[in-house]
Simulated assay, not measured.
Amino acid sequence: DACLFIGLPTLSKWDSALAGFLLLLNIFTQIGFVLVVRSHMLEDILQPDQLTNLLRFRTNVAHDVKYADLVGGRSMARQVCSQDESLQWANSQTGVISDLNDYISVGPVLGLLAIGCWLSTTLRELFNIMGFVSAIRRYPIGESTLMAAGEEDDSADVVITQMTQFRKWVLFLFVALPRLVVAVSLAITGTRYLANTLSLADLILNAVALAFILDLDELVESAFMPRRARFLLDALGTLPIARVEIPGIGHVRGGFQERLKNMLKVALLLLGLSLAWLCLLQPLYDRARLAHNILCSGRQDFIYT
């Protein structure tokens, strides 16, 4: 929002240049994070080739006498499935069993909660962008962008009285549109990223990491934004809220409009959770059960020479 003041006489050329640079830095950093996650961290787990490798381990290694505990009379399959800490072989399979046991017990529920929190965060950002665009559209168009002192009954110390059409288009194209692209990309990529996490500990850490990416703009603003720009933003207060106009009815009251917005948020959240469960979490849960059955179902203690 501090980009509203870029190029205005209230900011020096240096402050305007720095604010513009921080805007571009934030956009490219967030897009970079999204691209890294999409290209390197969205590989589906427990795919057919991985399940085939687990099956080969169960049939060719897990019951081989060479790897059995002859003193205790236990095959490697029994040791892996019981997560025997004294086992010197098959550490990767033991780790997989540990993750599978945890995920099968509470993984889908925890994943759904994490995705719900993440979608709520991205929905907040999306509606903030919509509010920003609506506020910019509401400003009267003039030959120049003018600011004035706020009225006594106004919560803002400074108000924008008019804005040029060129500035509006710049704000739409270089502020609102990149924010929208980043928010939508993060919502989709982050949901897939969380739903594709088998370890419960990694699930919590990944959710926190995604929230950090989304809040990166606030971190950059608080750390590097020129002091005068932050002062003007605080003095500007809340941007004007445009009321929805329904043909034949007129403008919707503010309270009713806010309730409609909250209902829309809840509906979108429920839709996102439903899609995440059906398309991502449920298939992963089924694959986790299949992988667990491959490694630990049936008789475990027989060995062959």
Rank of each mutant, 00 (worst) to 15 (best):
T122F: 02
L23Y: 06
A195W: 05
E218C: 06
R243N: 13
I6H: 00
L186A: 03
S92I: 12
Y285A: 10
A276D: 03
A229L: 01
L194I: 02
S12M: 09
L236Y: 06
S297P: 11
L271P: 05
T121C: 11
L55K: 10
S75L: 07
G272P: 01
L280F: 09
G107M: 00
Y103A: 05
P108V: 08
K13A: 13
D217K: 06
Q282S: 14
K168Q: 06
R253G: 15
F5R: 00
R179Q: 09
D154K: 12
S222Y: 11
L290F: 11
D157G: 14
M76T: 00
R138L: 15
A235F: 04
L35H: 15
L260D: 09
L205P: 07
Y193W: 15
P178Q: 07
G111V: 10
N128G: 14
I249W: 15
L236I: 01
I136K: 01
L214H: 07
M225P: 05
I136H: 04
D217V: 10
T161W: 02
G248Y: 06
G111L: 07
A17Q: 04
V37E: 05
M225L: 07
C81Y: 03
I303F: 04
G20A: 04
S199I: 08
A276V: 09
P48D: 01
A183Q: 01
R38D: 12
R38C: 12
I27P: 03
A291P: 00
Q47K: 13
L268A: 06
C279M: 14
R74G: 04
I141W: 10
T122I: 07
V34E: 04
Q88P: 08
V106G: 11
S185Q: 07
L54S: 02
D84R: 04
Q83W: 07
L281Y: 06
A19C: 10
F33C: 14
V170S: 08
V175M: 05
T191N: 08
A211P: 12
L46W: 02
L219Y: 10
G298K: 13
N91W: 10
R167G: 00
L54K: 00
N91L: 04
C279G: 15
G107D: 00
G111Y: 02
G116A: 08
A209L: 08
F302E: 15
T122C: 07
L219G: 02
A19G: 02
L146C: 09
V244T: 15
Q47E: 12
L173T: 03
V208Q: 11
L203R: 01
M263I: 12
L4G: 01
G254K: 15
A19F: 11
I188Y: 09
D102E: 12
V37P: 05
L216N: 08
V266K: 05
L236M: 09
L295T: 01
G150F: 08
P283S: 10
R78N: 10
G32E: 05
S105G: 12
P247F: 09
R253M: 15
